[in-house]
């Protein structure tokens, strides 16, 4: 099994990601300033896509977790783990960009309203998911445990998203997915936001592709180490029994 591992170093995900970001950046800079928040709205064109991609990433982790539990195929475990790591990155990015937007708009970097608090909890639960993976050495046990957590943790996504609708928060309610239709009329603003979401999706796909490549190589390393170390481990146990004198003489 280990002999057939030949993983190509693909470059195209990086090229696709860079071009998508360049297009989205240009559109976000030429779109009009907002009537109230002025140029600060440009931060929204990266903050909102980052938050959406975090939702998408954790949903893919759910899909990977279910896939693993149903089929026991390691490719699903690698997908779940890779997507969770990228999702943690996007969650952290959304929180940081939100803080940078919040300081000049609200007047504070952070406040404990429902949306912000629940997003922070979501961040730490998925950091916990990654920690659980590091704490478990056996590949099968690790895959199973993290898959269970990957399924359970998904309940947070609707709670985080709808927290601004269910409870009165400082954070504004959704602008796009809401009962009265989108709250963005200007076409250039819509284009800037959509371009941001598309670009971040391409970046997400690139990151997950490369992260899965890494996971495959790491799994191959572990498998090969296991086959190589078995005889060595046997010698290590036997060795002290064969030569008790040098140790006892000292």
């Amino acid at each position: 099994m280990t002999a057939q591992v030949e993983i190509r170093d693909r470059r195209w995900p990086w090229y696709a990601a860079v071009s998508a970001i360049v297009v989205a950046l240009t559109l976000s800079m030429i779109s009009p300033a907002d009537a109230v928040q002025g140029d600060l709205i440009r931060i929204m064109y990266i903050h909102v896509p980052a938050a959406w991609l975090a939702y998408l990433a954790f949903t893919v982790t759910l899909a990977g977790s279910i896939g693993y539990l149903a089929t026991k195929r390691m490719v699903f475990d690698r997908l779940a783990a890779s997507s969770a790591e990228v999702g943690v990155y996007f969650t952290g990015l959304a929180i940081l960009l939100g803080m940078i937007w919040g300081k000049p708009t609200w007047g504070v970097w952070w406040t404990w309203d429902a949306r912000l608090t629940l997003t922070a909890i979501m961040f730490f639960v998925y950091v916990g998911y990654l920690a659980l993976r590091r704490a478990t050495l056996d590949p099968d046990a690790r895959a199973k445990r993290s898959a269970i957590l990957g399924v359970l943790a998904i309940v947070q996504i609707p709670i985080v998203h709808f927290s601004v609708v269910w409870w009165r928060t400082l954070h504004q309610p959704p602008s796009i997915i809401r009962p009265d239709g989108p709250a963005i009329q200007d076409p250039l603003m819509v284009v800037a936001l959509v371009a941001g979401v598309v670009a971040f999706t391409v970046v997400y796909a690139a990151l997950v592709t490369k992260r899965m490549e890494l996971a495959r190589i790491e799994d191959a390393v572990v498998a090969r180490e296991a086959t190589l170390e078995r005889p060595v481990a046997g010698e290590a146990v036997v060795a002290p029994d064969l030569s008790p004198e040098p140790g006892g003489a000292r």
Partner: peptide, 25 residues
């Protein structure tokens, strides 16, 4: 002043993305 915040946010975005990509590579 607002452009300074926008620039700061862009730097955080590009900087963090570069770090994350760098760690994967």
């Amino acid at each position: 002043g607002q452009w300074a915040w926008v620039t700061f946010a862009s730097l955080v975005f590009y900087g963090s993305l570069a770090l994350f990509v760098g760690s994967i590579v």
